[in-house]
Design a protein around this nucleic acid. Sequence first.
RNA 1: GGCCCCAUCGUCUAACGGUUAGGACGCGAGGUUUUCAACCUCGAAAUCGGAGUUCGAUUCUCCGUGGGGUCACCA
Length: 497
Amino acid sequence: MQETEKIRVRFAPSPTGDPHVGVIRQALWTWLYAKKMDGQFILRIEDTDQTRYVEGAVERIQNSLKWLGIKWDEGPDIGGPYGPYFQSQRKHLYKDAAERLIEDGFAYRCFATPDELREMREKQQAAKLPPRYDGRYRNYPKIDAQKRAAAGESCVIRFAMPQEGSTSFSDLLRGEITFENKELDDFVILKSDGFPTYHLAHVVDDTAMKISHVTRGEEWIPSTPRHVQLFNALGYKIPTWVHAPVILGPDGGKLSKRHGAKFVLEYAEEGYLSDALFNFLAITGWALDDHTEIFSRKRLTEVFDLKDLSKNPSGFDQTKLEWMNGLYLREMEEDDLVSIFVQRLEHDLPAEIPRPINWALVKELTPLVRERIKLLSELSSLVGFFFTSDIPTPATEEFLTKKWKDRSGDASEALKFTANDLEPLIDWNAEDIQQTMRNTAEKLETRAGDFFSLTRIAVTGTRVSPPLFESMEIIGQELCINRIRRASNSLRNTTDS
RNA sequence: GGCCCCAUCGUCUAACGGUUAGGACGCGAGGUUUUCAACCUCGAAAUCGGAGUUCGAUUCUCCGUGGGGUCACCA
């Protein structure tokens, strides 16, 4: 019974480079479905094209998945009952299948050279015909083909597509899709180097691995009739097909590396949270209802369903991802966030700052900054001044904006008063610091805001910073007063122009 | 170009054939405020076009149009 069969799905990338968000979203949806259905999620490496193999790609793929919390139940590193999980290690299976197809009259050897085929296509195109294999070896005597192959002549094996009628299949999302067989040519199933093409390989493997749902990008729709024919010719059961939408680049075309980060691990480096990217990827192209969009992984494994995927390709809304990342940063459990912050600062803070990073300090400043950043990469520049006893005094121009324009003397005075008023403070806490400084401002007949901004620059070194008084409390009395005095002195030595 | 898929605010999307077409990001206005954020309120913003079917189409059908995919000894 189909209904009672175990759900087994797979993610089957080829190791040609880093997986970008489009392919990883595909993996993510597939994984969610496996979890929801209490099935198995298999990772299989489709390395049948040795010319495109990229060193380290398998590791990058695995690391991308791991970073997102997508664990496979069977795969190249952990094995499983249907291994091996590298197609390059299953060559004999494809060869056997191809030979069986020849035996049964579904396939034949083709000795056309690449040059010959290229020439053929050029002629077709010159004649304004669609480029396609013309079947020149389709009726070549089997005995002769056998002889030439045995003699070591290079050849490929092609599938003999039916030339009449049509092939239909049902897609979970799109329903019935039909192609005229005459539109399809005799495609290669086994290459001259003995490796299979994708068409043969995945049909053989998906069957051998008992894959119940073939999930893949919609770009595969046009070759699905070939797969249907292959499944049938081999006597295999047709799986359920799910051709999911793809992600479009910001330019409307295919996702391109020119526009910002593209690879999953780049998002990690840029300071996105795994949970946030996961959530975001899950809901671009899928929705539960008309209002929910924040989901934990666990919740998603309960409510997600492949059949609810959107049919149309989606753009990648980078801005919304950033918003969502900020949201996760704000809502995360504080202790978890502290440890993420520490980790990030270890990595991002300038080398001069001694390691290990002071955990207690990070814990203190976390509440001050967590809602001020969208990306972890923004953290170190925002909090750097907490970690060094010796910030460089900002340039005069930094201080003399707005109310203080051309008033370096006044600014210097104001800071001097602040330092003096702050010095006797016994209980160094944000509230008292604020009160003291408000008094100072009043005394100087200066608007508090203008006055605070001056102090902010002196203490933090920047015009934009975490809340001033809380920051000052953390930095400590002595250091704050030093910085303010230093700023005051530097301003006094400036002549207004 | 042939074939195939798709079509709701700028973007991601929701809507048993009956809703003032909903939400979110972003954007604009206001509020809050020591900077920046965050937060709150309000606002602008969409059913690609044309025929049908129907008492009634975002929804079903057809035709256009637009976008995307695919036509390899790549996946």
